[in-house]
Design a protein around this nucleic acid. Structure first.
Lengths: 181, 181, 181, 181
DNA sequence: CGATAATCGAGACGGTACGTCGTGTCTTATC
DNA sequence: GATAAGACACGACGTACCGTCTCGATTATCG
């Protein structure tokens, strides 16, 4: 059922995604869908949560720059090339018109994702490679913000060269750990 | 007519914005709307272009940091607080499902806007305050990207402290102009 | 269960009478109803047979006119004022669209009722007060026919004055018993 | 459209007559039907009024018995054999559950029909062949009542022999005009 | 007297039709 | 000749019941 919704979204696009279509594709009665989900967006939300659960956990190589570069590349690929990314873009779009959906999206996905995005920095702090006073959230915004912006707004590509440059720019002015030399 | 569309969008939200509603509000027959605009999105697009034409041109104080900070603040306020910003968010959302709209939005608004966003940097280069080799587009992405990202995706606030920090972070590692000492 | 059906019919009318409603009202699962009755009409039919069993047996006063007048009044009151009459009208209505129901209604109720309707005439013949050659069925039709017609079709009232007049009109031209003077 | 409703009623019966079916048959959108008729019964009512307008006007032969016999036969044939009669039976059935429909049926059809049913008697009175004090409505009820009763309730046949007998029975005890001998 | 089956409530399910809303096209009457 | 008014074919909406189908839980009987 979630699978049917997922597939149809990718096939025909959000605009032509109908509950009747999902029901027919899933071989299910319309009422059965309404029994479990109040709206099309909730179906997509569940489909997305189910699919995207595993994704976008940064690796841990003990090298902050390397981890961030890999993670930024993964975020870009997820957003632009994966099916789950297509669902995410659709949900984000709908969330602009639907505050309840926005809340769900943030509480059920973006919160966790923010945790993953912070992970490389937190590991670096833990291993003493980064000053604990660094504003990690700001750093994360500076890396992933431009990626989402390009995907959702300008439509420009987000090649590795770009994501690498974003990472490098952020790292360039992060204070090194204070060494009592 | 565009006004009616504009008002209704703000009043009832995109989801409940109908062409019949716009026609009624404008005291006009539905067909008259169809004579000029092929779709709801095109009406909004025109309404947006009309309204937002003047906005978001950066000031010129001969101080790059000061100009960028002011501009970033303006972008944030436009996106979160103005009626035109609400229309922009709706259009950006719909553009996710409608490539033609995405194209219009980019060619009729974002291109010009990008020019404005670049202006402070170009002026700084012109007055010799910035190395001409700087990747201005990257710098712009790093400043405005996180703002759009917060507004469209995470829903977090974008106070002046944040936009200032973004500007400062970008300026911190921009190479100063090469001075032949 | 039959009681629940009966009550609901009188309360909400046939149009809003649902099997789910009956089940809920009777505190019973829908399937339990389906175990015993194939359809809504069959439930009503059983409810009617149970309730109406006692009704409409003509008295025997040894006076044909008096018996017929009393019986005709009873028929009119049954049809217009009793709950069982309401069920009968509903069943008769449905029988127009459902031949099987029509057959049940005739075999399980109307046949017996016709026997009761004939009784005063048969008693009169037996006691020598009526010519045995009389077409009793025709006479019955002429008395009860107009009553049902008014109730089911024209909706006009059927007061005692009317039923009495019907009886009198029929009796007026019935041949007296042949007396070999 | 009315034609489609009419045809479908005869073809599939009232129980399977759906508005979607009528729409499809008439090559029309469902909404177009709802624009003009609030319910299935109203469609049938209009279809019936249109079709049955001409029917059942008694002939005038200057012979009361002959006119009544012919008219009673026509009524019986109309009810049992014509398409319009099938619609009438369905409407009468639904009118049992729907007071508004009952009212329409009476005001738009039965009133006029009652006028036709009375006509032979009124003509007889006019030509001096019938006592003006006769209760014509009662006489009409006694003739057509049993016919409707047989058709709607008992389902027994209404052959000419029966309708003739009904007419004869009524005429048998009607007072002749008072002749000043 | 405890295992074993029948019966029941609850309610999910695939369906059909409902009556409503909005779309984009069209015709008609007005100014 | 453009416009308001609004009818129309169409597609989808969300709802109500239909009749069928598992599920446990609860009796009720029999071993």
């Amino acid at each position: 059922m979630l699978e049917a919704a997922d597939d149809l979204l990718v096939e025909v696009g959000y605009a032509r995604l109908t509950i009747e279509g999902i029901a027919e594709r899933a071989g299910v009665a319309k009422q059965t869908i309404y029994r479990w989900w109040p709206s099309k967006n909730d179906i997509l939300m569940d489909a997305f949560v189910q699919d995207a659960a595993e994704a976008l956990i940064p690796s841990d190589s003990a090298d902050l720059r390397q981890d961030l570069r890999a993670h930024a590349r993964n975020v870009a690929v997820f957003l632009t090339e994966s099916d789950a990314g297509a669902v995410f873009r659709a949900l984000t779009a709908q969330a602009q018109h639907d505050p309840a959906l926005a809340t769900r999206l943030r509480s059920e996905h973006l919160g966790k994702q923010r945790g993953y995005d912070r992970l490389p920095f937190e590991r670096a702090v833990a291993r003493g490679a980064l000053d604990p006073g660094v504003d990690i959230d700001l750093a994360v915004d500076q890396i992933v913000g431009p990626i989402y912006y390009r995907v959702l707004v300008t439509g420009k590509a987000t090649p590795p060269a770009l994501t690498d440059a974003l990472v490098d720019a952020v790292l360039a002015h992060l204070p090194p750990p204070h060494t009592e030399a």
